[in-house]
């Protein structure tokens, strides 16, 4: 554990909680892609199956359970409790175009051809692109609520911090995991355009809106 890793995990946790609270407090999931949230629930489910097979630390177990629990709670709020506010007409990204190629890639490029390892690899690849339906929704509506942009910022910063964590671990522990690193770089790059808008607009007190 180093400072980048811890900060990354906390940023990830903050993102998840910001989104849950936003939906809960406003009683609305307008502007949120349910498809991205289903993908994140799938990511956590396939990645954390090792909860059943190995114990790493109390921290590790606690965070995994919280991430999974919050992911399903978010999906529940969007598709059940506040279904009437769900922006289905704009949330039209075809997720099969992500899940199918990612599933194929996980079979082809992995560390070990075993069920748990393939599912872990699948989750890493899927996480790197799971935000695309959300970014697509924002590009379609042309705007995002400020609280939604805070969510996206924390979520993007999380993987960027993990990149620093991996650099740290490579230098000080000789550890590297090529699958996680490449997927993490892809994931972070997908947020760059958003980071630019966040810094130039949201942090200056303006609403995030895209030119028509």
């Amino acid at each position: 554990m180093n400072i980048f890793r811890l900060a990354g995990d906390l940023s990830h946790l903050a993102a998840i909680i910001i989104l849950l609270l936003k939906i809960w407090k406003t009683r609305s999931c307008a502007g949120i892609s349910g498809k991205s949230q289903i993908l994140f629930a799938l990511v956590f489910t396939t990645r954390y199956l090792d909860l059943l097979t190995s114990f790493i630390s109390l921290y590790n177990t606690f965070m995994k359970v919280v991430y999974i629990g919050c992911a399903y709670a978010t999906v529940y709020l969007i598709y059940m409790k506040f279904k009437a506010t769900y922006d289905g007409n704009h949330d039209t990204f075809r997720v099969e175009f992500l899940v199918v190629p990612v599933g194929g890639l996980a079979f082809l490029v992995n560390h070990d051809f075993s069920p748990l390892e393939i599912l872990w690899t699948f989750s890493i690849y899927l996480e790197s692109v799971a935000i695309l339906p959300q970014l697509f929704l924002i590009s379609k509506t042309g705007e995002a609520e400020t609280i939604t942009t805070h969510y996206l910022f924390c979520l993007g910063v999380y993987r960027a911090l993990y990149l620093f964590n991996w650099i740290w671990r490579f230098y000080f522990e000789g550890f590297f995991d090529m699958i996680a690193i490449v997927a993490g770089v892809v994931q972070t790059i997908l947020y760059c355009d958003f980071f630019y808008l966040y810094v130039t607009k949201v942090l200056k007190g303006k609403k995030l809106s895209l030119p028509a």
Binding site: R5, D9, H12, R47, D50, S54, I56, S57, N60, M63, K64, Y67, H111, D112, E117, W120, Y162, N165, F175, F176, D177, M178, A180
Partner: peptide, 10 residues
Amino acid sequence: EDDAQPKDEL
């Protein structure tokens, strides 16, 4: 190529 590692990262 690196081998599978125990997954301590989230």
